[in-house]
Design a protein around this nucleic acid. Structure first.
Lengths: 239, 239
DNA sequence: AAGTAGACTTACTGAAGAGTAAGATTAGAC
DNA sequence: GTCTAATCTTACTCTTCAGTAAGTCTACTT
């Protein structure tokens, strides 16, 4: 570490090192509280190098997001693809890989997740793009999952999108939960999530619908959802 | 508006007006990009007043969070309590009220949700507290929902907490989705969410468990989840 | 009508930190 | 060896804001 320090490095390598450092600092302090000097120091370099290579603080942050989002998406995608043809299996494998990813690379997760789109255009756009990529991946699995399940008389892209958002949102929130419950394995996280979502998913997308229990105060005795009652479909948005 | 302007107001009133203004500005710009002068101007007042009454920029932000979080929690709680005894109904009513709340008062939602805990201790703590309050509310409903459903041979507070997080996370994400799909009523949002979650919820909390489909590549023909296969329970975290 | 307390202002200070100008150093090409 | 192009540094500038000192004004009391 102190050995080959102060050695000159080719641009590509230094760039990655700078991004590594930036990731740590942004993760720890957040975008605004992060100070470029600190990032430079952590990268073993002086500030103007950062500006020379990455352009601006914002550019630096965008580079972090882009790199980590790509890695994360790839992790999910690779695991899903390796898991076979069934969307159920793919989703399971993808989610497991996701939880494993975030429980290691905490910094990536923090930067991707905890940084509100408070920051300027560029950053917000980058985060939105990253999220959209994941959404499409998941949305596709959901859609195909239903198609294959047979009961898909009714397919609606908007519904699939809705489900994908719910699923991703739940996974996000559960990541925070996982941080506070060490000892929870990625596998177990995923099992629980599948447990909760997979059945309900098929309901929504298959056109079945949950109906609010009838008006008045109900007794506490077995008054579960009316799920399973097949109905035409989720009605289109009435304009 | 330009009529009684420049009129001197008692402290309590001015304070609320300042918080109103701050909410708008924080929502639009985010915590850091927000400038106290702009808040003051919008409140029709000069900057030192803000500091005199609210102490600091951070104090001002905390006041916003606290007020809006209280309002939101109250909205949920009141709707749920008015809806009867059944947890299913309560959850339904609460969620509907929630979606209604966020689709009006956008500013409140943005400040509560989009502001990462990047900011200092105090703000992070305040946001965490707000979230925890909601979580407990929802967690309670989940827990009782299962108890009443009868099948609750196995109750685990940690599981209820897990479900609550998933549910709240999904609702969060769906709020963003709703912003991009105008015309979606709070009621419809809630129906879909209940549709997806309520069944799965009972699975997890009742001790049933989803199992990953057996190893190899499956054909696409009706290979749905093994849900419904009652098993001992979700195993305790193995240390 | 004089006094006072609370509402409100103008006009500052001081620090922090993004970004840069101007050059020093070194690795390799020839 | 010397030239050149890339790597890297020291030492600034300049802006933006949070926070404040030192009052002024007005509504209300007595």
């Amino acid at each position: 570490m102190s050995d080959k320090r102060r050695r000159r490095l080719p641009r590509d390598v230094r760039e990655q090192e700078i991004i590594d450092a930036a990731l740590q600092v942004f993760s720890k302090r957040g975008y605004h509280a992060a100070v470029v000097d600190e990032i430079a120091e952590l990268a073993g370099i002086s500030k103007p190098m950062v500006y020379l290579y990455l352009g601006s603080k914002e550019g630096l942050f965008v580079s972090c997001i882009r790199r980590e989002a790509d890695r994360m998406a790839a992790t999910f995608r690779d695991a899903a693809q390796a898991a076979g043809d069934s969307p159920e299996q793919r989703l399971y494998a993808g989610l497991t890989a996701f939880f494993a990813f975030v429980s290691e690379r905490r910094d990536s997760w923090r930067v991707l997740h905890r940084q509100a789109p408070e920051q300027g255009e560029a950053i917000a756009a980058e985060l939105a793009a990253a999220r959209r990529a994941v959404m499409e991946e998941v949305g596709g699995l959901v859609m195909h999952g239903i198609t294959e399940a047979g009961s898909a008389t009714h397919l609606d892209e908007q519904d699939a999108d809705y489900v994908a958002h719910a699923l991703v949102g739940a996974a996000d929130a559960l990541t925070d939960w996982m941080e506070r419950h060490p000892g929870e394995s990625p596998d177990r996280m995923t099992q629980r999530l599948m447990n909760m979502m997979w059945v309900g998913m098929r309901n929504v997308l298959g056109g079945e619908i949950w109906l609010p229990p009838a008006g008045t105060v109900g007794v506490g005795k077995k008054a579960p959802a009316k799920a399973g009652r097949a109905r035409a479909a989720v009605p289109k948005t009435a304009p």
